[in-house]
Design a protein around this nucleic acid. Sequence first.
DNA 1: ACAATGACTGGATACAATCCCAGGCTGTAT
DNA 2: ATACAGCCTGGGATTGTATCCAGTCATTGT
Lengths: 214, 214
Amino acid sequence: MARPLTARQQTVYDFIVKTMTELGYPPTRAEIARALGFRSPNAAEEHLRALDRKGVIRMIPGTSRGIRLPGGSPEGEPAAVDSGLPIVGSVAAGSPILAAEHIDRYCPLPADYFSPRADYLLRVRGLSMKDVGILDGDLLAVHRTQQVRDGQIVVARLEDDVTVKRFQRDGNHVTLLAENPDFAPIEIDLAHQHLEIEGLGVGVIRGDNGSGLG
Amino acid sequence: MARPLTARQQTVYDFIVKTMTELGYPPTRAEIARALGFRSPNAAEEHLRALDRKGVIRMIPGTSRGIRLPGGSPEGEPAAVDSGLPIVGSVAAGSPILAAEHIDRYCPLPADYFSPRADYLLRVRGLSMKDVGILDGDLLAVHRTQQVRDGQIVVARLEDDVTVKRFQRDGNHVTLLAENPDFAPIEIDLAHQHLEIEGLGVGVIRGDNGSGLG
DNA sequence: ACAATGACTGGATACAATCCCAGGCTGTAT
DNA sequence: ATACAGCCTGGGATTGTATCCAGTCATTGT
């Protein structure tokens, strides 16, 4: 079961990703410890084991810098690609997004047109993200993952409610920012509230309405 | 300058690239030696020095697996699809939009996904239409037609310049409205200026950039 | 003939890095 | 109360790795 990462584990994971993209190779335990302020490399070791257990990284025993980021998201089964990307309309409270009854129709676009790969298209309701060009009725291409970084557009589920917002985390505190001055940010304390990240916004499609934009 | 690599050095370099793309981290001297049949890691060390001298890799002293490939990580480019909608980048003055030299690549989406049918995708530059959710770099799906109505988003050519604007006509007078308070409307007197309507905006696609929206 | 370079073998050393053990502290679940 | 997981300090054994030194052999340019 993919229990979500703890805040600290997420920090470690983020540092690994950052190191690998910036330097081209993964960090050592000592480097992780130094970067996050641990006085012992063992703290990093234990975090790595946890991340490995949860499947977001792979440790290669006995190998220096032996950390791998397995391709694809942790346990997201690849969406049925045959007929294209499923288009999800409104999501009922408490049920998984990709439940069959939510699937409206399919968009004949290959999943890997977007990068990272899109797993489904979510029809966006409301104008809370209009300043980043996501309008009412648009289709948001979503990559299923729990690994999201600050500033990214995410699909989140908060108390059975699915929303699209910009993600920002500070330790145990998460802020979901709208991109529209008419909407207030949503503040979440992870210690007291449950927040589930459903995926990462990777694209937008608009225009199946029928008579041109306007 | 950059003397070309010897055959053996090329082999070593290829192995480094292969290792990094397959494993996610660079090889050690010993691993290179093992892979290429050297009986001493020093042979690998000397090759690495040569590759560093010639600038194709960068060695980080004292660091295990401290090998970097300068000039960005090798990214797999998306396979060129020769079917689907042509994507048009910048359009040279005075030439038809669908001239072959403007076609960047193709988007594997059927033309009739949009309605009315899209004939090509135009990459939009600038933020003049940001208030209707068309941002810089977005792909505008365009239906080729001259029959446009007031209020529609159109692709127009004015004095060899191709722009995307909202269309408004009053007798012989046309106004092309931006959807961004920072941009002034363009006023055109059809009796004195030539305006060509290239098509009607029927959709928007965003998100072929590579790492999520944000 | 000579030096310079590329391509190695073989051996050695010191540090880099993984990984195990023994704790402590704070929560949350049972 | 007790147990357990997450998160951390501190130390230490063992192995992984970078890096140096001393040679050999062939090729190439001078």
